[in-house]
Design a protein around this nucleic acid. Structure first.
Lengths: 333, 333
DNA sequence: CTGTTAGCGCCTTCAC
DNA sequence: GTGAAGGCGCTAACAG
């Protein structure tokens, strides 16, 4: 019925049940060393008074808040939204709450948020942190338990990541099989892990396939970036284009089609991420499905393990699956 | 440098600075009644020991956590993601943290989350709560300060909402001007506010425009739902279709085009929400831009006002703007 | 201006 | 089995 008028405390319950504070505490925490009869009486009083232990006071004395923090560079990014969702779900299933913080792509904010959110939680999950490796190691080390998503091996802390390199390898193999030998790669953010990992995959592939030429072109990270790159791609004479992400691919797709180029007959286009709309373009986009939700779930799993004392959870690397749709086809003769 | 080895407390700082606890507390809280010299000494000690007051202990004694909760029915929904982002940004700017909770479209979960998250925060923002009005009033009343997003007048608590009804009115007027007289409405979730508000707009419009026929068809809430409704829409003989949201509109668009219907020449299609991809369909989607980010910002503004003691912040209603793109055109002769 | 004393609400030794 | 007392870390009276 009526809410606690002004804050029911454990003392009120004790008085109502005619026992001491300790007994209430014990009874409500299912401590077996309490007379079942009393326990029941206490529970009844608690219910009647609509009492719930203050999580704050509890946290202070227990040293656990039952809350973790998730720090992301940009809440507007679908991938981070999905990771957050994965964490949120999984953590909730284990009875934990989630604090979110958006660093707005600022390394300074990131550093500050990591430490400040840590103080009000039991641990923090850093998603694709933008800070340099050295700093990341230091910051993350100082706030453990911490879990890092989508960065490569930072020493002892658990890392959960998508294997961009392997995924790009799959895409290249796919295009190669279709006969493509001249390929253009629309690079995204220079210093990002997602980009460098793919450059590595490209280097590896061209090493083992001397008959393939892959040229790099700046493509930005959004629809407009892809659209702007269209002329360059068309002039390059390439028969296939690898976009940094699906948005870029969609921009490119739209722009090249507007100038009379047929996809995939004249040009094959490959995206990355498999955002929800990738399947709705015309033609539907061939891409690599980054398992963002699972990334989030795994990040929680790692965090949960740390919280339970199981130290040094292994790092996990998820392999984005190649999703072949209509935007790729045999290379034109 | 090194992190607090095991938890630096205010006592450590006091000892280091050679003063009492209270002086440290006062100095660090910029209490003017402290000797500037001492204050400086304390700050120096604090910095040297890398001390920061425990937010937990602080919250307990102050009765404020500097944190608010946001409860959403589904973190996968772009609209809620955007609202969350708006809240997050705005709250962060005012020095507040945000706890997120996903009720997974469950009324039970919603009720529980509302009250449990409230206990560890200073207030909660309920986004499009699914519980019935009566219950909403009771629950929200019990956890105030609370702010409700996208529900209509629930008594005394502040409401921040998008005016679905007015927006649909705009869309109907737009179609009417283009000459459309036979229109089909793809209804979404029956009992949702977003749906009933639009049915009201339709009733109002047909009342004042007897020459217009608007038929209702079940259209679901996603791409597939829209696609499935395509045959019904085509058979109806309507020259324009209003979709429950952009996803439905895209599904319909895709399906009718596949069966040879030209948009907008044979059929005009209108979406709702203006999700990021609405501008990238072919043709681009005419829709109503729901200002989700601003909804979130306003929700925070209302919450902030409550937190500052300014009672009964006024409810705000945001008018989604009609965005005319290529999917609507003159009615066929 | 500064130090001492109470709590905030709860859990947990420690005696009974 | 149960109650009394101490303390988690901090702030806010209350004296000096």
């Amino acid at each position: 019925m009526a809410r606690p008028p002004k804050g029911v405390t454990i003392a009120d319950v004790a008085a109502h049940a005619g026992v001491s504070l300790s007994t209430v505490s014990r009874a409500l925490n299912d401590n077996p060393t309490v007379d079942p009869v009393l326990a029941e009486r206490v529970r009844a009083s608690a219910t009647e008074l609509n009492y719930t232990a203050s999580p704050l006071a509890r946290s202070l004395v227990l040293g656990r808040t039952q809350t973790i923090a998730v720090v992301v560079p940009d809440l507007a990014n679908p991938t981070f939204q999905e990771i957050l969702r994965g964490v949120s779900r999984a953590a909730a299933a284990d009875g934990y709450h989630v604090l979110v913080a958006d660093s707005a792509e600022s390394v300074d904010e990131e550093r500050v948020l990591a430490t400040t959110t840590r103080r009000r939680t039991d641990g923090v999950i850093l998603c694709s942190p933008r800070m340099p490796q050295e700093e990341l190691d230091r910051v993350a080390g100082g706030i453990r338990p911490a879990v890092v998503v989508n960065r490569t091996g930072a020493g002892t802390l658990p890392i959960v990541r998508a294997d961009y390199r392997a995924a790009l390898g799959d895409q290249l193999a796919h295009l190669y099989e279709l006969g493509h030998r001249r390929i253009v790669f629309l690079a995204g953010i220079e210093r990002s892990v997602a980009n460098t990992a793919r450059l590595a995959a490209i280097a590896e592939f061209t090493d083992s396939h001397p008959d393939v030429t892959i040229t790099e072109v700046a493509g930005g990270v959004d629809f407009d970036g892809g659209a702007r790159a269209a002329p360059t791609v068309l002039e390059s004479g390439a028969t296939a284009a690898l976009a940094f992400n699906d948005l870029v691919a969609m921009g490119l797709l739209s722009a090249v089609q507007a100038s009379g180029c047929r996809v995939p007959d004249d040009l094959s286009i490959v995206g990355f991420d498999d955002i929800p709309f990738a399947q709705y373009t015309s033609p539907p986009l061939t891409t690599a499905a980054v398992p963002a939700l699972e990334l989030g779930e795994q990040a929680w799993a790692a965090m949960h393990a740390l919280l339970e004392g199981e130290d040094a959870a292994d790092s996990v690397s998820l392999h984005p699956e190649l999703v072949v749709r209509g935007s790729t086809g045999p290379a034109p003769a």
